Simulated assay, not measured.
Amino acid sequence: MDESKTDGYLMAIYRLQRSDRRVSPSAIAAERGVTSPTVTRTLQCLDEEELVDYERYRGARLTASGERRVLAALRRRRLLERFLTEEFGYDRSEVHDEADALEPHVSEQFVDRIAARLESQSVGPHDAPVALVESMARRERALQSLAQCEQGATVVVSAIEDQSLETLASLSKSGVVPGTTLDVLEPSSTGELTVEVSETGEQVSVSADVASAVSVVHVADEPTHDHRQHTEAR
């Protein structure tokens, strides 16, 4: 099977999988934009390669080998993004497509040299650790999408999945970037989610699709208004 296709399926399972539960072929089909029979055939091939553990009617989960491959791909991607950002001045909204074009053509030796050049520090421009893949695995398992957050939650943006350049630029302009703390205010009747950027107090409306692509770490259960009062008191 083509390596990029294999990595795409493994990445889809990684994003959908939580803890040790299995992912259904229909969920993978929706993520990949293909039919369920196509997914089933692919999962059978990946099972033979021992990259996934697939059981009919129960779904698939990554094996240890499959997860190592995904984490290596994530490390490669984050290093490329950070290298382009820090060494060549790419904007956050531009770096994704450029890294997409480069990634299939770089060797692991080249990636290791990038890591050495950047001294393997902790994050890339869209976040996620680049040096300690074990830490990455533990951290990403704790993530949830912004769309899943309840009203009143306080969260920190960890990563933003593939979005158009315009969307990334708009989020960046509003302050919704990795590392930003957000207070989840309320959903609207149009399906948008209203959040408040804690550092600036700016309220931002985020569409349901974009909210699903913003990964966050939950940091507090206290109601949003209490959080603001605490901030103002300081």
Rank of each mutant, 00 (worst) to 15 (best):
A233I: 12
G191A: 05
T35R: 09
R82G: 07
E50G: 04
V52I: 01
S212A: 15
D20I: 12
V157L: 00
T231K: 14
L84M: 05
E232A: 15
E202M: 04
A99L: 02
V123K: 11
A220E: 05
D127A: 13
V204L: 02
E134Q: 15
D91P: 06
D183C: 04
D97H: 13
A115Y: 04
P37G: 01
R56Y: 11
V219W: 03
R113T: 01
E150P: 07
A27G: 06
S174K: 07
I13T: 06
V206G: 05
L84Y: 03
E81H: 05
V133H: 09
T200I: 00
R138D: 10
S120D: 13
K173H: 13
D91L: 13
S19E: 14
S174G: 05
P223C: 06
T35A: 11
A131I: 00
Q203R: 15
L74G: 07
S164D: 05
S135Q: 15
G8M: 03
D2C: 06
M1F: 09
A60Y: 03
L168M: 10
L16H: 02
E103C: 03
S158L: 02
R68L: 14
L71R: 08
T35P: 03
V123M: 10
V219I: 15
E161H: 13
R56D: 14
T35I: 05
